[in-house]
Nucleic acid binder design. Structure first.
Length: 426
RNA sequence: GGAGAUGUCGCAUAGUUGGUCUAGUGCGCCACAUUGGAAAUGUGGUAUACGGGCAACCGUAUCAAGGGUUCGAAUCCCUUCAUCUCCGCCA
């Protein structure tokens, strides 16, 4: 959420953000409610001050009765004003939760992903001297999965990895975690079960109504809890209600968690293979920093993911996502897309996002500035470290050989016991 | 899941027959004094949010959270949450 003061002082900027991000403009309603709420606060506080004064006089007064009567009368007046105040404040609060984060000036303006801009391309898609196989054929012929069996046992959009590819998956995960640790990230093994409020505090969804997110989030029946779609949810709340010292910042976490998503909006898409599944494993980069460090950290997180792409020897490109595509809570977003030979296209493997102080305001995560002693909200950022099994798809498709075997990227070989390839006939 | 105990200003604690608690004390932290410098010592200070004000400052709220009783609640009542101990179950 945004600072009400910011909205008061920059209504046009906020209105513009609502428009370019495709969210309803509630700014005028907020401003008029805000005026009334402040009026009521002033009135009730003045009356309460008077009541408190009388209460302090009562113990020593010789004639208590008239004071008590007066105090009761003021209490009744306060109650009436308070009823309206509570009401209006709740309304205001709800509207404030519907205001999207202001996008960065550098973000392309547009309604959806068609307005995204490619900002750089690294590596060249390989020219195969044979017909490359799509992921599902490689999985099938190497016995790396068992789609019908698992669909029968567990339902669709889930997967089981078997044998050497499952080993490679674990190796990649370990590799990325170790890389991030070496760059000063603290490794956190995160829970996947959380309270819905925690998801709400990550600011992925508009408004205060927790039921809004039910379309995307698995709720656990008979409990008040749900499954998280990313470790970001938990990492975001790790310092809620704390006042950090400036010296601690930036705090960098590498969170791992199984991730659960309904993928309700993607019915019929990516039904084959292991690109889009209800449950997957993800290493997430997450940073708490000073607002002025945000851009620097964004580049840091982005370069870490790019390095992973390069270590996996994948051709990839970096996208500047448009205002309409970046989502409710983001200032800036860069997708990193790897080349998928089977689709003859680049597809998202990770997404680097600057959130500004938007999440910190919801979690009440602040820091004290050394020079001034002022307490300010931190800025937060997140980026994928690696998402599995999706990342395996470009790895096996790009590095496949004619016999169906797959060459292991050099950096991964030590974690695969020195093997240089997996699969094929051997 | 069952039984019991606990939850106070960064930490540790006092306060639970309701009003002098706008929460005391110790530690920590900051400033100043003392010192050649430090330690020790002394003195003072030490939260957050919101509202009002140009400002100095004033007011309101916060003793886990929410609700209730009362003129008045850290203190009484209810609900929830968290922690600890024991039991059960278990990786």
């Amino acid at each position: 959420m945004l600072d009400i003061k910011f909205i008061r002082e920059n209504p046009d900027t906020v209105k513009n953000a609502c428009r370019t991000k495709n969210f309803p403009d509630v700014v005028d309603d907020i401003l008029s409610l805000d005026v009334r709420v402040r009026e009521l606060k002033t009135i009730t506080q003045t009356k309460t001050a008077e009541k408190n004064k009388i209460s302090r006089e009562i113990p020593t007064a010789t004639d208590k009765a008239p004071l008590i009567t007066k105090s009761k009368q003021i209490s009744d007046e306060i109650a009436a004003d308070l009823a309206e105040l509570t009401d209006k404040e709740a309304l205001l609060n709800d509207l404030l939760h519907r205001v999207p984060q202001i996008p960065d000036a550098s973000a392309p303006v547009g309604a959806d992903d068609s307005a995204n801009i490619e900002i750089r391309r690294v590596g060249t898609p390989r020219n195969f001297d044979f017909t490359p196989r799509p992921q599902w054929e490689l999985l099938e012929m190497n016995g790396w999965w068992m789609p019908e069996k698992i669909a029968g046992i567990c339902g669709t959009r889930v997967y089981a990895l078997a044998g050497e590819l499952a080993e490679l998956s674990l190796a990649i995960q370990t590799y990325v975690i170790q890389k991030l640790i070496s760059k000063g990230f603290k490794y956190i093994e995160c829970p996947s079960i959380s309270k819905p409020q925690t998801i709400f505090n990550a600011g992925h969804f508009m408004g205060s109504d927790l039921s809004v997110m039910n379309n995307d989030v698995f709720m656990l029946t008979d409990t008040d809890r749900c499954l998280t779609g990313t470790a970001e949810i938990v990492l975001n709340s790790l310092h809620s209600d704390e006042i950090l010292s400036e010296n601690e910042l930036p705090i960098k976490y590498a969170g791992f968690s199984p991730c659960f998503r309904k993928e309700a909006g993607a019915a019929g898409r990516d039904t084959r293979g292991i690109v889009r599944v209800h449950q997957f494993n993800k290493v997430e980069q997450y940073v708490f920093c000073k607002p002025e460090q945000s851009d620097e950290m964004h580049e840091h997180l982005l370069s870490n993911l790019c390095e992973v792409m390069e270590d996996l020897e994948l051709p990839y490109r970096v996208i500047a996502n448009s205002t309409g595509d970046m989502g409710f809570n983001k200032v800036k977003m860069n997708d990193v897309e790897a080349w998928f030979p089977s689709e003859n296209a680049y597809r998202e493997l990770g997404s680097c996002s600057s959130i500004g102080q938007f999440q910190a305001r919801r979690t009440n995560t602040r820091y004290r500035e050394n020079a001034t002693g002022e307490v300010k909200f931190v800025a937060t950022l997140n980026n994928t470290g690696i998402a599995l099994p999706r990342a395996l798809v470009p790895v096996i498709e790009n590095h496949q050989n004619a016999d169906g075997s797959v060459n292991i990227p050099k950096k991964l070989q030590p974690l695969m016991g020195g093997r240089t390839k997996i699969g094929g006939k051997h």
